[in-house]
Computed example of a mutant assay.
Amino acid sequence: MPDNLQEQFRQLESLERTLVVRFATAIHVLLELYDRLTIPQATTFLAVWAEEGLNVSTLARRCGVKPSAISHQLRVLTSRNIRGVDGLDLLVVQDERTQDLRHRYVFLTERGSALATRMVEVMENGRMRRIPPMGILERPDQPPLDGAL
């Protein structure tokens, strides 16, 4: 890490440093468990896991991106088929129609919950050793993804 970044990190409060390290660990574990994710997709997944039921615009703000970027991430993270490639089926976007506004809320799917549960197990049980990919998340209607998710 360049000196100026190390100095910025040192200037953070103790709790902030702890949160940064935990977030980095969570991203690392998530990417090890499910190597098809990009870092922005992993960040979106973690934000939804941390607070299910957020509307899409709030989720975009929490992730620090524009709504169009979150929409792209959600297309991949849901079960949508894009150009012949199935989505990852980790999140679901539910629409709710109200008087004048259409609200869209984001939740974990059963598959997303299984991934989150596995992340917690790995992080609690020795995150320093090699993390095997999650074969348990294979969808029965799809062939295995090169032995990993």
Rank of each mutant, 00 (worst) to 15 (best):
P2I: 13
P2Y: 13
D3C: 08
L5V: 04
L5K: 06
Q6A: 14
E7W: 03
Q8Y: 14
R10G: 04
L12A: 01
L12W: 04
L12Y: 07
S14N: 09
E16I: 13
V20A: 09
F23K: 15
A24M: 09
A26Y: 01
I27N: 01
V29W: 07
L30R: 08
L30E: 10
L31V: 06
L31K: 09
E32V: 02
R36E: 15
L37F: 14
L37T: 00
L37Q: 00
L37V: 01
T38V: 02
I39D: 05
I39E: 10
P40K: 04
Q41C: 07
T44K: 09
F45M: 04
V48H: 00
W49D: 11
A50R: 15
E51I: 08
E52C: 02
E52P: 02
L54W: 00
L54H: 04
V56A: 09
T58Y: 02
T58D: 08
L59I: 05
A60N: 07
R61S: 06
R62M: 08
G64A: 04
V65R: 08
K66R: 01
S68K: 06
A69W: 12
I70T: 02
S71M: 10
Q73P: 08
V76P: 10
L77V: 00
L77I: 02
S79T: 07
S79K: 15
R80S: 06
N81W: 11
R83G: 13
G84D: 08
L88C: 13
D89Q: 06
D89I: 05
L91G: 03
L91F: 08
Q94N: 13
Q94P: 08
D95W: 03
D95K: 11
Q99R: 15
Q99P: 15
Q99M: 13
D100M: 03
L101Q: 14
L101V: 14
R102N: 10
R102H: 11
R102E: 11
Y105T: 11
F107M: 10
F107L: 11
L108P: 09
T109S: 10
E110M: 10
G112R: 00
L115V: 09
A116P: 08
T117V: 07
R118G: 10
V120W: 07
E121R: 06
V122H: 07
E124V: 14
N125G: 01
G126Y: 03
R127C: 07
R129D: 05
R129H: 06
I131S: 05
G135W: 03
I136R: 01
I136A: 05
L137Y: 00
E138T: 13
R139T: 05
D141E: 11
L145R: 15
G147K: 04
L149I: 06
